[in-house]
Every structure is written in structure tokens, then in C-alpha cells.
Design a protein around this nucleic acid. Structure first.
Lengths: 352, 352
DNA sequence: ATTTTTTCCGTTACCGAACACGGAAATATA
DNA sequence: TATATTTCCGTGTTCGGTAACGGAAAAAAT
């Protein structure tokens, strides 16, 4: 197993009775080779089991690959921060192979900003793209252009089903809602659940968590058909208004022990309220491990979080493209649904 | 950011007024360089920010690194199989850099077999070692020898505290027991818990799960001081005897809804019994995602599993050594406690 | 002062692949 | 038949290190 001397391009050349220049030409099919030698060389490559030496190749080639990641912009402590950390990890890997990785960000509430980001990316034709899509139609259009240019693109976080993407790394949304219901109810029969949602004033912005909510409601309907489900909408920008809304909620429900759920990373909005009022008789479940959520989990104002390793996902996306560029390998699976982590106060310290 | 031409060994040589041969000599401190030039070269390296090109180095050097992994032997579907899969992943990475990875297995119930494995490994001095330790004293002795030889070693799964290891990748055992209690009880007051343990006839074999059990019992004592905890010992090799023991257990406890826990990967022993008797009124929690456990989880005879990604852990261990060998980098953290995954029927499909 | 030994360093031939260059052979054109 | 074009392919240089080799200069021994 160790006497197996690696077969080189020279061995192939010799065995095929040509020079390594010719072998190289067929390897990168850049023409100027007769069909006869081409076939011969291919056959020799096959039978010697030749595969090029990555390092020699990297050393000799002056190629300049670039991977671009298109993600929503964010403030400190917000969900997408973890994705950016994943870009760091991915970059570390890619840079070993002389591949640069850059991030282009857009405002997830502004279609035009997304369009601008896409245009910009198309402009300087990258070698590969990682994209966290928010706008379905625009993304499809963008994807089509990438496809035409032969640029592989990987979806993270969510994906556009019909499309011919290189790979996908993300959470199964419907299942995550289903799981969430199980975690919230602790498998006991409960009478009433409060869903807290974000008010969306923007026109036509599709709610990214709708599928998740569906999964949740399906679980409840299947297991506790008599359970009441309330929806309360809160304003992400106005704390006073939020508190008022929640005051209202707490006044309306006489049961002191309440079950509260949010389907996005903003569960800290609710927990902050509970903390302010020192209410400890609720079971609160949300998504994603933000610092704020984690702190409130430790303090006991959130009972559980369901999370995905979006940093690892992003890193995996970049790794996949890198490997494709330097070794022409394709990921084992096109759709990579990542595990849904259940985080509570007893295992949260080892999560990040 | 992209005009930064990489500084090469030639740049350093020129700037220091020597030849690259000399620079190479100080780089690998293989002597034959005057102190004066050495200092000068070091200074130039510092100030130009030179770092060697990994690929050129790998290409030119005919070094033959070998990483050896020492793990318990196993049958199909057993716990350590996942670790071996991790070796595969790790190998894939290491082989890119011309590093071979091999596994040496020992019988985890036989001290001599472990000693033999260690001796064998020391024999052909590897460049790095990954070890899943079972015998404390023997491992320490082995570690000391590796240390003397300057061979870095990484612990996986569990570690020997006092020792000067290169890194550790594994689960926090005490915490996993604590978490397990939370998962088992679903935070409701219960009266009686059945712990199922493996009969250990072998003399002096330390139980690897004792710390975990302590964590579990502490949780129970803190939260439900009145809860009764029974211990039942079963024979791993004798199914009939197991069934008899469990028959006994079920006869002795009048409550039809039982809470059962095991602290190792063999929870399928219990679930098999429940399945055979078609008992569905228990809450059963165990550890580790084996195929058998997973199947029984899906069928509803196990309610939850607590797991660690021991494949990822092993791969990380190999990666760490590889990076050290080829780039002299040291892992960010010496102790890497991995997340405790909570697996139930709703998220198990996305685990592996 | 001469010879021997050390110390120190430059030269050179790789490693395996990429690619530019130029030229022989084959084919087309005159 | 002579010349111009293609087609096809070998050669040589380069990428950034590694390490053996051998030689000049300095130090030690005679």
C-alpha cells in the first residue's frame, strides 16, 4: 500500500508514446491533438489510474479563482453573523489553494439591493457562487445567468427547488416546525399556544418561515386537535409597542403557564419582556443560537432553541466549490439537509 | 488585497543577501549556518512576512508522514464503527498532503491487547497518533513514550486529564448525564427511574460511563429528591437472561408508565425487549446513534438518544495533526468538547 | 608556514504539472 | 512541383521549495 509510486504525467506520456505536453493538452482538452493520440492517452490514463498531483498543478497554474458569497447584511448578534463566520472558515480552506473568497451583502428587505448585488457579481465573473436567497424570482433569474456562464452556485439556508444548483446546505424547514412543536409541548396535552410573529409592513415580502409554521401547525393538529393557537404580531422596531402587545396577550390568557413559540431568531423579543416582568411560568421555544438568545436561555427565559450550524453549512458550501475547482469533484449529495440541533440550558455551553 | 504578491524564499534570500539554500537551512534549522546570517535571515523573514508555500514544499519534499489511530475493535453496528468512519474522512484529508493514516485496533476488554497495540505503534515511530484510551495507566505510560519521541498525540472520546496531550476531541461526560436526566424526565416530577447497566464480570475494568451516571444522579437528586432510582444489571451476551431480568423488573414495578435509561450505546437491548413484548408505555433514553438504536427510535421503542458526532471528532483529530505536520499550526483550543446532540423521532432522519 | 579540519554557503538537480513557443509532418493551394 | 497552411506535438522554462554536493574561507592542528 505504500510501494505504490504515484503515477505522474510523465509515466502516462511514456506509456502512450507521446510527450507530456500532449498529455497535458488532452487533460485540459485544449485541442491540437489528433483523435488517435487522444484516445490512446485516455486509455493509458485509465489503465494506469493516473490522477494529477494537486500540488504540482496548483504551483504551476497561475489561475485566479474567486468564490463570491451573497448573503443578507446584518448587525452584530444577528442571525447572519454566524453565516459570515462560516465564510471565514471556508476562506481559510480555500485560500490554501489560492482561491479568494469574498462576501457581497444585500438588504434582505430591499429587492433592488439584491438585484444590485447580483449584477455586481455577474459583472466580474466569479468562479463560483454561494448564495442565501431571499427573493425567489430574482434569484431564479440570477441563477439562470450563472448557469449560462458555467459558474457553479450553491444555495445555503434555503433554496429554489426547481433550479439546477450545484448543491444545497440548509435545514429542512417543514420538519423543523414539526420538531419545534414536539419540543414546545414536551409531549403533554396543552390547551393553548401563542405564536408570536413579526409584523411585516413591506409589500410582497414572502415570509421565510411559513413552511416552518406549517410543520408546527400540522404537528399540533395531529397530536392535539383541540389546542387553541393564537397569533400575536409584534413590531421588531418598537419595543414599547411590543411590550404593549405582550401585556395584552398576558391579560387575555388567564392560565399563568403559557406556551409561546417564535419561528425565527427573534425569540429574544419575547424573552426580554418576560425578563423585564420577571415572568418565569412560560415555556418559550424559538430558533437559532444568537448570543442574546443564548443568554436568555441560560437565565431561564427561553426553554429551548432549535438551531442549525449555519457556519458549518456555509463553510461546507465553500469547501464544495473549492474542491470542485481544484479537483473537479462533486459533493456526495446535492441536497445536504443539516441536523436540527436541540439546545437547552443543559447542553448550550458546548454548542459554539 | 490581491496585488500582494506572495513573498517567496527567493525574495527572502535576496533581501538577506544569501542564497535560498541558506534560507532553507535556517527554515528547517538543519544547521551549517553562521549565527550572523541566521539572525539576519530570521529578521528578513519577519519583516517581509514570509511564509512558505505549502504546495511547493509538499511537492519537493519526499517526507513520509504517517498518522496512526488506536481504537477499540468492533463488530458491525457498534459504537466504534462511527469512529472508524471518521478515520476515513480524516484520511481523505490527510492523503491530499501525502500523509497516510492507519488504524490499529485493540480489544477494549483486554489490557494485554492494548499494550500490544501500543508497542506496535511505538515500534515504527509514527508522525502522529490518535488514541481512544480505555486503560488509564497503560495509556499514560504510552503517552510518556510518545512525548519522549516528540510525537504529537490526540485523545478522542475520553482523555487522561493530567497528561500533556496535543489536543482532545470528545463529549463532556458529566454534563451528558445531567442532560440525559432532563431529557428522560421531560421536566415532570416522576417517582421512579430504572437504570439499566451492563454486568461487568471482568476484574478491574473501569466503567467508562461512571461520570455520566454521576451527572444523571445529581440532576435527579437536585430536581426530584424523592425519586427512586433502581439499578438493573443485564448480561450483554445472553438474550434470554436479559429478558428474564427485564421480566422481573416489569413485574416488580406496578406503574405501567416506566422511565428507563441506559448510559451507553446498548439501549437497544432494552428496546428489543419492549418491542418483543410490544410495550409502548415507557420512556426510554440512551446514548449514541447506532443503526439499531435509530431503528428502534423510529419505531417508538426508544424516545430519545443523546449523541456525539464521533466521526467528526475523529476526523478533526486527524486534521489537527495533519495541519500540524504540514503547516506547524496548533488547534485553536486544546480541549474540544463537542456538542451533545439530542435525537428524537422528529430530527433523527437528518442526523447522519 | 603548511596541512588538515570545520564551518559556512552557493550551485544544481529535482518534484509534477502548466503553458508558451517553435518546428516537423501533413494537407491545401498555387 | 513548389509554396503556404494547418494540424499536431516535443521542448524548455517556470512555479516555490528541498536537499545533496562540493568548494571557498576560516579555524585548528602540525
Amino acid at each position: 500500500m505504500d510501494t505504490e509510486k504515484k503515477v505522474t504525467i510523465n509515466d502516462v506520456a511514456k506509456a502512450a508514446g507521446v510527450s507530456k505536453g500532449t498529455v497535458d493538452r488532452v487533460l485540459h482538452n485544449r485541442g491540437e491533438v489528433s483523435e488517435r493520440s487522444r484516445a490512446r492517452i485516455m486509455q493509458v490514463i485509465e489503465q494506469l489510474g493516473y490522477s494529477p498531483n494537486m500540488h504540482a498543478s496548483l504551483l504551476a497554474s497561475r489561475k485566479n479563482y474567486r468564490i463570491v458569497c451573497i448573503i443578507p447584511e446584518f448587525h452584530n448578534g444577528e442571525f447572519w453573523e454566524l453565516t459570515e463566520k462560516g465564510i471565514e472558515y471556508g476562506r481559510e480552506y480555500a485560500e490554501r489553494y489560492g482561491i479568494t473568497v469574498e462576501a457581497v451583502m444585500y438588504d434582505q428587505y430591499d429587492l433592488e439591493s439584491f438585484q444590485k448585488a447580483c449584477a455586481e457579481v455577474l459583472e466580474d465573473c466569479p468562479s463560483g457562487v454561494v448564495i442565501a436567497p431571499m427573493f425567489r424570482n430574482e434569484t431564479l433569474k440570477f441563477a439562470k445567468e450563472l448557469h449560462a456562464m458555467g459558474v457553479p452556485y450553491v444555495y445555503i439556508d434555503s433554496k429554489i427547488e426547481e433550479d439546477d444548483y450545484f448543491a444545497y446546505y440548509g435545514m429542512p424547514m417543514y420538519q423543523s416546525g414539526y420538531l419545534c412543536a414536539d419540543i414546545l409541548t414536551l409531549e403533554r396535552k396543552i390547551e393553548r399556544i401563542h405564536i408570536i410573529r413579526i409584523e411585516r409592513d413591506k409589500r410582497g415580502l414572502s415570509d421565510p418561515t411559513v413552511t416552518r409554521r406549517t410543520g408546527f401547525l400540522d404537528y399540533i393538529a395531529e397530536h392535539y386537535p383541540d389546542c387553541t393557537v393564537d397569533n400575536t404580531f409584534i413590531d421588531p422596531k418598537d419595543k414599547a409597542a411590543r411590550f404593549a402587545k405582550l401585556d395584552e396577550l398576558f391579560a387575555s390568557d388567564p392560565d399563568p403557564y403559557k406556551y409561546i413559540v417564535m419561528f425565527n431568531s427573534r425569540v429574544h423579543f419575547v424573552a426580554d419582556y418576560l425578563r423585564a416582568k420577571n415572568i418565569t411560568t412560560c415555556r418559550v421555544v424559538g430558533f437559532d443560537v444568537l448570543d442574546r438568545n443564548l443568554a436568555l436561555l441560560r437565565e431561564g427565559f427561553v426553554q429551548a432553541l432549535i438551531a442549525q450550524r449555519s457556519d458549518k453549512q456555509t463553510a461546507a458550501a465553500i469547501t464544495a466549490i473549492t474542491d470542485y475547482l481544484i479537483m473537479h469533484t462533486v459533493p456526495a449529495k446535492k441536497d445536504n439537509y443539516t441536523h436540527m440541533d436541540i439546545i437547552n440550558r443543559y447542553n448550550c455551553d458546548y454548542y459554539l
